[in-house]
Every structure is written in C-alpha cells, then in structure tokens.
Computed example of a mutant assay.
Amino acid sequence: MAKTVVILGGSYAGLHIAHALLKKHDKDVKVILVSKNSHFFWNVAAVRAIVPGIVKDEQLLVPLESALKRYPAESYELIIGSAESSDFAAKTVTVSTSAGSSQTLSYDHLVLATGSRCPSEDVPWKASHSYQEVISLLSRTRERVSSATNIVVAGAGPTGIEVAGELGYEFGKTNKSITLLCAGDKLMDGDIIAGAAANELRKLNVTVKYGARVTSSQQKTADGKQEEIITLANGETITTDVYLPTMGLVPNSEYIDAQYLDAQRRTVNVDDYFRVPGAEGVWAAGDIVCKPRAGFMITQKQAAGVAKNIDLVLKGKEPTLVKGLPVDVMMCAVGRGRGAGRVNSIKVPSFLVWMGKGRTLALQMVPGYIDGSVA
C-alpha cells in the first residue's frame, strides 16, 4: 500500500520536498501538499516588486498546480488551506480549506514547512495571505509608494536594508524622502557588513536614523490623505505617507502542540536529522525550525536533507545527518546596482553581491521550483 506523506506549506521547503519525493516515489507514495496560497511565491524579490514597473506579478507568483501536474494524478493531492490542529500521537492533522470545509488527514510521514509570517499584515514580504490578497497587497503598496512624498522603512536587518535600497535606487534622486529606522547604533545588529551597507544606502540618498526603535504605528486620514503616525521608544513621533515595517518573524506554528516547540521563539524543535523529537514520522524544515536561523539558502539545505531522509526511511534505511551550509553567508542587495555581503568573516565586494544576488534577486531560479529541477 502506498505511504502517505503530508507536507504542510507550499513554499521553498515544502515544494522542494514534494518534488524530490514525487520524482522518486510517484507510484508507492501519495504526497498531499497543503498550502494557504494557491501559488508559489518568490518572496526573495518582493522587496523589488513594491517599486512600480520593475517586477511583474507573474514572475513572483506561479500556480502550484503547474508544478505538480507533471506527476501522475493519483500520486499527489494539492489542498489550498491551512493547518488548524495536529495530533502527532494519532498521526493526523486537521486542515481548514479555502472552500470553508475541514479535513482530517492521516499520514505516515508529516513535513512541517509552514514557515513564518510578518507581525504586520500590511506588507508583502511573506506569503501569509491568499493569492488574491498577495496580488492586492502588492498593487496597493506600489500605488502608495508611487504617490508618496515620504517613505519610512523600519527594521535595519537584511529585509529592511534591501527595501530601503530598492526605494533609494528608484527614487533617491527625486523629491521623495526615504528613511530607514534602526533600533540600535548600527545596521544588522553590528554585523561586519553594517558599515558597507550604510555606505551603499548613503549613496542612494537614504537617510538612516539610529536609536529609533518603533513601539507603535497608527494610520490616520487627514484632508482625504492617508498618513502613518509612528511612535518611537524615546517618545518621538514621525509622520509619513508610507510606513513599511520589516521587523521580526512570527513562526506559523500555532497548530502544533507546545511540547514540540521552543518555549521562547515558538519554533519547532528538531534533532540533527530534522525529525521532531517524540513525534514519530514528523519532520520539519525552513523558517519554522529552531535552528540555525531563517534564510533562503539555509532552507534549501534543510529541504534537501529532509527529502533525502524520508526517501531513505521509505526504503527501509536509516536517515543521515542533515548538513547545513559549509560557510556562513550573508548577502544583502542594496538597490539594483550594489550590495554588501560576507562569507564567514570575509567581506565580499559590492559588485560581486550585485552579480550573485542584487542583479535579479534570483528570479531565474523560479522555473527550477516549478519544473522540479531544484530537487
């Protein structure tokens, strides 16, 4: 009898693992892919997609069905919905579908790849919404950016720097004012590329305001115009036309019993094989796991390792350790022409960051996730 593998999450990790298993087990395994979004979302390029006329929606969002239809129909099922609860002892997960129904799925193996979301629901950095909601959010953000005189980006991590860089590259020489709020006294919590990133932003006429930790924001309509009132920890308020927060990630782990989660971060605990301890047949990959940190390249390695291990177990073999990246890589695009990056403690020249990431934000990789060559 065919084994059932339920994969929760249709983004980088989930789709990668689905491809890997279906390519090797399209007859003896049934893969059920559950995704809140009906489309695969290349959110790496979302920071550029908010600039009007640069990235088309169809480059960012591709139907998941088009990725799976190459496999025998009986070997997979795509469910558009989200996990509501799980029972690892009973080996079941309950899913709420986009049609409004509820399904309880039984599994032999379960992959937790539901990723994370932004604390703010009004920014398009993650696929936390339905396809239509993401399209609408991107369109609305572009319109607001286009008509704005003042734009404030909050959060001086990689996403905040990339957002500010894209805006600076496009509008830095116009009448738009672009400000990046940094809670500390250095970008990226003082990473060795902080100074290089700050220099690149300066060249794009982006103002960096240090010691500016946001405590709240409020939308206000005055004279028919929408404004954002941002309050900082020191009591200062900033009024802007567009406010784009990039701070923090919230793991999508509410459907998982607390005993399997890290108590502080609410991410999923995994062992070195990326199994969930104490939960038979449950694996995890991507932003939802407790180690080492969220990151696209890290997710790729985890997905490949989990797919390999499930394949081994299905063949009656022992799983192997999931290896991470051999080096610690940080690459931060700063606009469409420059960047800042490092490999371990070695700084990478700006033009190499542009060649490796900033030139395309890896949009050329999207077809590999659709045709399965990524796995």
Rank of each mutant, 00 (worst) to 15 (best):
A222H: 14
A285G: 05
G172S: 10
G335I: 01
Y210R: 10
G224D: 06
A194W: 06
D272L: 09
I161A: 10
V250G: 01
G278C: 06
L112V: 11
D28T: 12
T215R: 11
T221L: 15
M1C: 08
R359I: 02
A20P: 07
A212G: 03
G53Q: 04
L249A: 15
K209H: 11
G316S: 03
G248E: 05
L110M: 00
A284G: 13
A183E: 14
A263N: 13
L352G: 04
G155Q: 00
Q218I: 10
D185G: 12
T360A: 03
G81D: 09
K220I: 14
M188A: 07
T231A: 12
K24E: 12
L325A: 08
E228P: 04
Y260A: 00
T174F: 09
K220Y: 10
N37H: 11
A294R: 14
A304L: 14
P326I: 02
P326G: 02
N234Q: 05
T94F: 02
S350N: 04
G168E: 09
G235N: 01
K91E: 08
A307W: 03
Y255L: 11
S38L: 07
G278L: 07
D191L: 12
V153M: 03
C290Y: 15
G184I: 01
A375V: 01
F41N: 07
V306M: 01
Y243D: 00
I256L: 11
S217C: 12
V206K: 07
F274M: 15
T231Q: 13
G305T: 04
D108I: 00
G10E: 02
E318A: 12
A196Q: 13
E84Q: 14
L8S: 03
G224V: 05
L78C: 06
V242W: 01
F171V: 07
E170V: 09
L181P: 05
L8P: 07
L312F: 12
V250C: 04
I310L: 02
S177F: 11
A89F: 12
A197Y: 06
A164L: 08
L21T: 05
L105M: 00
P349M: 01
V51S: 01
V242Q: 03
E162V: 08
L61H: 01
A20C: 03
A90M: 03
I256V: 15
G356C: 12
N234C: 07
L361P: 06
Y210E: 05
L8H: 08
V214Y: 08
A164V: 06
A20L: 09
T215G: 08
H16G: 03
L249G: 01
F40C: 02
V374I: 15
A198K: 15
P251L: 04
L137N: 04
L167E: 07
